[in-house]
């Protein structure tokens, strides 16, 4: 039995989700890490929200998001009513689940690097006449690129392995919102340990490859 027979669409779906969240992490991770390293009102609240998935059970986060984003939720309701669009049990729901689960793992290393090695360089850049955006692109990103790579590795790795939030928001619909991790879960429930083993090895190889690739990029 080949891998495709085990979970025909799960691999492609997981790669698609990983690709989209990688881009989102790159943008939001750097922006949030940079913002959280600067003093501004309500910084503590934003920091707590970003860090929440590290300490809060994923299944509970998924449940709250389901309530919020469902057809009758505070966010999902207007989306359904005005745009006719249902967020839950869709590809964007999988992306949202992976994004929320991995975000703190991307933001924290970046924030820590900016507060540490980049803080003085940011100040120098400002005194030399550069604004926040110029400083971000000319100094911060090049200086902390290794930390960015490390954060992306952790975040995307986490998104590959995400189950709790994905299960709630994505609905675990076979052939539609079944990611690799959920496929392993489903095969174990079916008693198909052979498939579960193959998929687990595949997921491990994928995560390791990603780790090697991003580490190499961070060294450049």
């Amino acid at each position: 039995m080949s891998l495709l027979d085990c979970a025909p669409t799960a691999l492609l779906l997981s790669l698609q989700v990983a690709g989209v969240v990688l881009v989102l992490f790159l943008v939001a991770g750097i922006a949030l890490g940079y913002a959280l390293s600067q003093p501004f009102p309500l910084r503590g609240l934003l920091d707590a929200l970003v860090s929440l998935p590290l300490v809060f059970p994923p299944i509970a986060i998924g449940f709250f998001l389901l309530m919020l984003c469902g057809r009758h939720g505070a966010i999902g309701g207007p989306l359904h009513e005005w745009l006719g669009w249902d967020l839950v049990f869709s590809f964007p729901a999988l992306v949202l689940a992976a994004f929320i689960a991995g975000l703190p793992l991307v933001v924290k290393p970046i924030q820590s690097a900016i507060e540490g090695q980049a803080r003085e360089l940011i100040e120098v850049s400002c005194t030399l006449g550069k604004g926040r955006w110029e400083t971000l692109f000319l100094v911060v990103i090049p200086v902390i690129r290794r930390h960015i790579a490390a954060g992306l590795t952790l975040g995307v790795g986490r998104s590959f392995g995400e189950v709790g939030i994905t299960l709630m928001l994505g609905g675990n619909i076979l052939g539609s919102t079944e990611t690799l991790s959920l496929a392993i879960y489903n095969r174990v429930l079916d008693g198909n340990f052979d498939c579960a083993t193959r998929l687990s090895v595949l997921l491990g190889v994928l995560s390791l490859s990603l780790f090697m690739l991003l580490r190499r990029l961070g060294r450049l």
Binding site: E120, L121, E123, V124, S125, C126, T127, L128, G129, K130, G131, V139, P142, V143
Partner: peptide
């Protein structure tokens, strides 16, 4: 700071390493 045109030399120089 960027509008003050101050040349600030830090104690550890803070050169851009890249």
């Amino acid at each position: 700071p960027r509008h003050r045109r101050v040349g600030l030399l830090f104690q550890d120089y803070a050169l851009f390493p890249h």
